[in-house]
Design a protein around this nucleic acid. Structure first.
Lengths: 374, 374
DNA sequence: CCCGAGCCTGACAACGTTGTCCAGGCTCTA
DNA sequence: TAGAGCCTGGACAACGTTGTCAGGCTCGGG
């Protein structure tokens, strides 16, 4: 569970600052102890407070706040005035409780700091915004437990829907939530053991085309460095690699494939191993952006030129010498498609779960077109 | 205001899917119409439902759910069983209403897709997580109205605190919220017209040092391309530039300074202008990562070598020819510092607003050390 | 056998909002 | 002038949870 590690108690104690410290401290500005008049100290004014001040009924305030008809201009003015004076703002928690929908959706991804997920997240946010919803973000750090913890926390907040980039491979824990009506779409990787909407890139086809590209430029000894094989995208891309090699009738040596964490040290070692020995690879296909970046660094120090095609586009790839040829996937499109599907679920337009695959695009910039330097 | 543009009504109608379409559709899987037994159709089970099924009182369920003491193992077992069977999950909205704190904080930034904000956001999230809080994210798209709209929407959700990267320059609209107890920290840029905690980088000093670095390498005609001057960071960096030049006794020509949107086309034009004419600049200082990237592209096509120092680090900057010298700021540290300060406000440890300035770091990689090519 | 202490358990109110429904006052018409 | 109908405003319950408090049970000691 999420747990507090400090004295900040998320859902507790409304004791105001000055009381807690035991004595009233008067800082250079008094803002933090200065409360609105007529409000219980430390609490926000409610509609009841507004109604009392304006001399009207509770419901009349509600009507004004929500722009409902049936209020005289004069009454409305009085209410507005009271709202201003008290600094009232409607409590959406209470509203949610009454109405049933929260107008918020959750996005669980691996790491917001990863350049691949930024645009994806932004795209989801834009769609949410267009539908009047807010976005709650969570990073799973590629940890299945943390993913589950986050997802369930979001469900407890009663998000209307969830966009999940799975870290784990078993999502049966989501069944009760989905049954209970939480719209759910998986992105980038499929869900495990449950039937749900999925939006993915054509990882297999993209990788296959990237490797074919290298083969077409005369390479036969081609290395593959990818993420942990339990990650679906990694497995699919590896499958693409194998297929391309097989189709070309090239037997694949075990030493040419390296799967594991994308930690730079591991990748660096893997690349160096492939590039040394009696039969070094003449080209490398990298399984994602982080791997690509590390391999570029290794190749920069390497004596012979080595061809490279990477999965995922990377910024400035065109300015390197040589430019980095990549299989690009459209992160924003993934996010947008998923979010749109989510809202179609909420609309009631969608019935059966579906799997949507977005195409990838080979962008040639030079590194993939280097001939084998034997 | 946030507004729905589709038929998804955020806070309305609990009519389930099959009812809305008017007829019951039976898809290949029945998951979306399949509800839990004993639950009002389309609604989630509540503690009341659990209590009824377990044959206990409401409060007993509450106790079990919250791990409070005073429940017999046997009773607890029965309750747990009912929870499982019904797929109950506590409704945090109701809990929030009762308890007063939401255990969530809001982060309003410019654009989640910008590589500078990803790590910042992630850092805020990590701190929030350590304090048991969730993070709600919003992009202002550098639009003051949208910033305000987002901030107020977050306040209506009763977030416990706000981390804001300001787009606008007047934040008096936040005064009622701060008075009402919403913890608030501004990051990257100071707040306008209100007294609040701020965490910023040393934009002035960083830019000054970057330009000094160019001067030290013999440059005198140095250009500055930055963001719109109304943005605080842009203004500060410009001030750093001016100061460095002034300190060195170099008069600055108007033609050497270009401020405006970071749109590539604008930046490209600005760079080309500085580089042409009778007295072209021999070095350029760029005001942020987006500008730097565009200028690198321009310089790559340029005949003479031109020195470059950019504000903000960029990925792969070390692998370009020459490597890009930058004034790096630590986005994650900005986020972490701000978030920690936010929770200290919530703790009650903090009283007076403060301004915290984080140092920047000059990273030399080659582009800033090119001599002037006159 | 009775009584008090201590442990479980549940009834009830409250959090702040919105939907329902009704009352009272007004206008308009026959 | 009376009755119908409309408009405005407000009382009340409900949303799902938790804090308070009191009642009932068991058990041990007198």
């Amino acid at each position: 569970m999420l747990d507090a590690t400090s004295s900040y108690k998320p859902m507790d104690s409304r004791i105001p600052v000055a009381d807690r410290t035991g004595h009233r401290i008067v800082p250079e500005t008094t803002r933090r102890t200065d409360r609105f008049p007529g409000t219980r100290y430390g609490n926000r004014p409610t509609m009841k407070d507004v109604a009392a001040r304006a001399g009207v009924g509770l419901k009349t305030v509600s009507r004004v706040v929500n722009g409902e008809p049936g209020v005289t201009p004069e009454t409305e003015r009085r209410v507005q005035e009271a709202i201003e004076a008290l600094g009232f703002r409607r409590n959406d928690s209470a509203r949610v409780l009454r109405k049933g929908r929260t107008a918020s959706i959750g996005l669980v991804l691996e790491d917001l700091a990863d350049p691949f997920y930024g645009p994806l997240s932004r795209a989801v946010e834009e769609v949410a915004r267009a539908h009047g919803a807010l976005l709650i973000n969570g990073s799973s750090a590629e940890d299945a437990d943390r993913e589950q913890e986050l997802v369930l926390a979001l469900c407890a907040r009663r998000v209307d829907g969830l966009v999940v980039i799975p870290a784990g491979d078993d999502h049966r824990y989501l069944e009760p939530e989905i049954k209970a009506g939480v719209a759910t779409v998986f992105v980038d990787r499929p869900a495990g053991h449950i039937d749900a909407d999925v939006v993915v890139s054509d990882n297999f086809g993209g990788a296959r085309d990237g490797v074919r590209h290298l083969i077409a430029h005369g390479h036969r000894r081609i290395g593959f460095i990818g993420d942990m094989p339990r990650i679906h995208t990694a497995a699919e891309r590896l499958r693409g690699y194998r297929t391309a090699m097989e189709d070309a009738g090239i037997p694949v040596a075990d030493a040419w494939m390296s799967l594991g964490v994308t930690d730079p040290e591991r990748v660096r070692r893997a690349a160096r191993e492939m590039l040394s020995g009696p039969e070094p690879v003449t080209a490398i296909f990298t399984g994602n952006n982080r791997v690509t970046v590390t391999v570029i660094r290794v190749l920069a120090e390497h004596a012979r030129p080595v061809a490279l095609v990477g999965f995922d586009d990377i910024e400035l790839a065109d300015l390197l010498q040589p430019g980095v040829t990549v299989v690009a996937q459209d992160a924003a499109a993934l996010g947008r498609t998923a979010a749109e599907r989510l809202f179609r679920q909420l609309d009631g337009t969608l019935i059966a779960p579906e799997r949507i695959e977005l195409p990838t695009r080979l962008i040639t910039r030079g590194s993939g077109e280097l001939p084998p330097a034997d």
